[in-house]
Design a protein around this nucleic acid. Structure first.
Lengths: 236, 236
DNA sequence: TCAAAAGTGTTTAGTTTACACCCATGC
DNA sequence: GCATGGGTGTAAACTAAACACTTTTGA
């Protein structure tokens, strides 16, 4: 070791903002009820201390699995929070991640470490421990800009989805109504959706199902294609 | 303290990618020659350990000042690097920042802690310590997308600049030639540039000088304006 | 036959791209 | 008077936005 033995070390945690889309087509966030102090019994983002021999992303995935049972989801680093008084235990730096998941695959249940885990609608977030509200706000902002420039929305949908479901997702995340015809033609013209069979047993004209063709997306991208969803300026 | 005394703590450092624009209109990066092991005498990004009672951004600004003498520049968090073997001293997590600065204000000199500091052209980066090349690549990618969607380019220019200087900057960062008339009309139409007096003592028709009107930009932004510079797809 | 959601075409406005010539200055 | 970079107008192609009616199914 070359470092001075007295080199100061803050604590390092990871926290995860897990976004999920339920059947009612609302975005929800996974929160856990803290089983131990500080903030015992408060709602908080799943997360915890980074341990030895573990990268940050590994820590995020481990904590998510331990506290909520979910595994193998789309995850990306969000921001690192290092304000001095964000944690009563001392100088605790939190590397925040956000994750996207489809709720059909990961139903609202599974809790092990934490005393409870629950999917909350964005409009009904309870008071949160630490600076977790700020982390959550940072994550929703990031999600909002991310869906416009990268095809991450599909992570929230089931593998097969209708164009209406896709549009609903975008409207929910962007908080604005989008024109149906423009939305459809835009996505279809991109050529990144693979058309599948039609819906069955719905009480209306059955919609076509599609899946996201990742290979095609990557091929187009490497040829200069840029994924972008424009948001009308004058509609609220 | 509520934490178990045995809670594991990695080291936490900050590293800064400082971009500067010199008079020859090339982007340069500030590197320091390391005065101590590990990687003694190697070139590296300025940075160092986070100390007590200090936020991450404070640490980044302090290290920058100590090692290179520069102060008060535009700085933003980039990404946090936490791979296990990125530092021979053990588990060292680095929170990276990037900064933008005009080289006229901060000439290539000032070194205190480090044995040497130097502005390198992006095309002539020497071998770097740790994973600093990766951090630098992450930063150039970020700068590339950032200038397209936020008016940060002005941070690299002197307060008063010509439209040609602005265009040069964009061409350098984006790595593509832009059409002069389209570039000019686009920026002028935005209404975020304030026209000043003309250049003096140049051996050609003197150009108009402009400055970035931040208040105007913020006013427009709050009314739905979105800053965006499109990059022609078919030109290399 | 009705309700419910799917699907479709066209016009208009705005933006992006591409292009070539004259202008003002110092030397 | 010439070299140097500054400055301008316009047409064509494309993209975004706005709009209303018909189709298919299950109940």
């Amino acid at each position: 070791m070359f470092t001075n033995k007295n080199t100061y070390k803050p604590f390092v945690t990871v926290d995860c903002v897990v976004f999920g889309l339920d059947k009612s087509e609302e975005i929800r966030v996974l929160l856990i009820k803290r089983a131990y102090p500080p903030f015992k019994d408060s709602w908080a983002l799943p997360g915890g201390f980074v341990i030895e021999n573990e990268t940050l992303e590994e820590a995020a995935r481990r904590e998510l699995h331990e506290e909520t049972g979910v595994r193998d989801l789309f995850i990306e680093q969000l921001y690192t929070f290092g304000k001095l008084n964000r944690d009563p235990r001392g100088h605790v730096i939190s590397v925040a991640y956000y994750a996207l998941v489809n709720l059909d695959k990961h139903p609202p249940s599974a809790s092990t470490d934490a005393s409870e885990a629950k999917w909350y609608k964005l409009s009904e977030i309870p008071e949160l421990a630490f600076d977790h509200l700020k982390i959550l706000e940072t994550a929703t902002n990031r999600l909002n800009s991310k869906v416009r420039y990268q095809p991450v929305g599909f992570e929230l949908l089931p593998e097969k989805f209708t164009l209406s479901e896709l549009q609903n997702l975008y409207e929910t995340i962007l908080g604005k109504p989008l024109n149906r015809r423009n939305f459809r033609s835009k996505f279809l013209k991109m050529g990144i959706l693979e058309q599948l069979e039609r819906q069955k047993d719905v009480a209306h004209r059955p919609a076509n199902l599609y899946k996201f063709n990742k290979e095609k997306y990557e091929e187009l991208t490497s040829n200069g294609f840029e994924f972008a969803i424009s948001v009308p300026k004058h509609k609220k």
